[in-house]
């Protein structure tokens, strides 16, 4: 199609063409622009850079699962003993409560504490003391996002392990609790708060990453508590009320599912905001 006006208007309706009038001047004006021609050296540099991204290039050798494990193991060295101990403490707390008043109180503690554990864990892992290390990490062949997700996966896996053990206890103690509902209602807030902690830590700092999810969760607990206290006048204990809504409330399930999605979204967003990326420098 050589006619420059046709190149502009081809595909438009006849009425639109007529309404546009004579476009010869515009078409010829646009034709005068030959555009920016790339330099040969520029093309050579482009090829040099792109060759690193070719499949099979040693520069971007895809990480094997054994390498992922090696990376995860290396990350675990960075976590202080106190991090692991805090998780175990929560587990012990759950165990002791189940001994004292297993039927009612444990699910309550579980729901309230588990997401907090995850959020605080994330903020802890990205604490400021590792800033020098963070800079040195940026000067390696491992991408910032790879590191962040490996670290996050470790925190989540550890919390998941503790939570699964507690879930098992609850299930053993209170068969009236529907297990999948409880899992989902736990997973929703945990992922959402973890995502929020992760994003806030990457975007701002680990203090904001700790305060923001803690504050949000605190508000939700307070709101829920006032509701539970109101129910107490109807003769229900808070724990019993919680078990009841876990077993029956569909809106809560939908809310937890949405929280899951929000959490995953925030985790993805945080990965894209990760420091040390090429975008953040250029």
């Amino acid at each position: 199609m050589n006619n420059p006006v046709d190149r502009l208007t081809d595909g438009l309706d006849e009425t639109q063409r007529q309404a546009l009038g004579d476009l010869n001047a515009l078409a010829h004006f646009l034709e005068t622009d030959l555009g920016t021609e790339p330099e040969t050296a520029g093309r050579d540099h482009l090829l040099t850079v792109l060759e690193q991204y070719l499949p099979g290039s040693p520069a971007i050798k895809r990480r094997q699962w054994t390498n992922w494990l090696r990376l995860a193991h290396s990350q675990s060295v960075l976590f202080e003993k106190s991090f692991w101990l805090a998780g175990l403490l929560v587990l012990l707390l759950g165990l002791s409560l189940s001994v004292i008043d297993g039927r009612d109180l444990l699910p309550l503690v579980f729901i309230v504490v588990a997401p907090l554990l995850a959020a605080v864990g994330v903020a802890y892992v990205f604490r400021p003391e590792t800033r020098t290390l963070g800079e040195l990490e940026r000067l390696t062949a491992t991408g910032a996002a790879e590191l962040l997700y490996t670290r996050l996966a470790l925190v989540l896996a550890f919390n998941l392990l503790i939570s699964l053990l507690l879930l098992l206890l609850i299930w053993l103690e209170g068969p009236q609790v529907v297990l999948w509902r409880l899992t989902l209602i736990w997973l929703g807030p945990m992922l959402a708060l973890t995502g929020l902690a992760f994003y806030a830590t990457i975007r701002w700092n680990s203090l904001v990453g700790a305060i923001l999810p803690l504050g949000l969760w605190g508000c939700l607990i307070l709101l829920g508590w006032s509701e539970a206290v109101a129910r107490a006048t109807e003769g229900m204990t808070p724990a019993f009320w919680l078990l009841l809504i876990i077993s029956r409330s569909d809106p809560l399930l939908i809310g937890a599912s949405l929280a899951c999605l929000v959490g995953l979204g925030l985790l993805g967003l945080a990965g894209r905001t990760a420091p040390g990326g090429e975008k953040s420098w250029s």
């Binding site: 790339p38 482009l46 070719l54 499949p55």
Partner: peptide, 24 residues
């Protein structure tokens, strides 16, 4: 499949047109 010559071919075809499009 990791073919460098093919990459050079694609760059040859699209480097200029894409640069013009994105510059404009």
């Amino acid at each position: 499949g990791g073919d460098r010559t093919a990459l050079a071919g694609l760059v040859e075809r699209y480097h200029g047109p894409l640069l013009k499009f994105l510059s404009r």
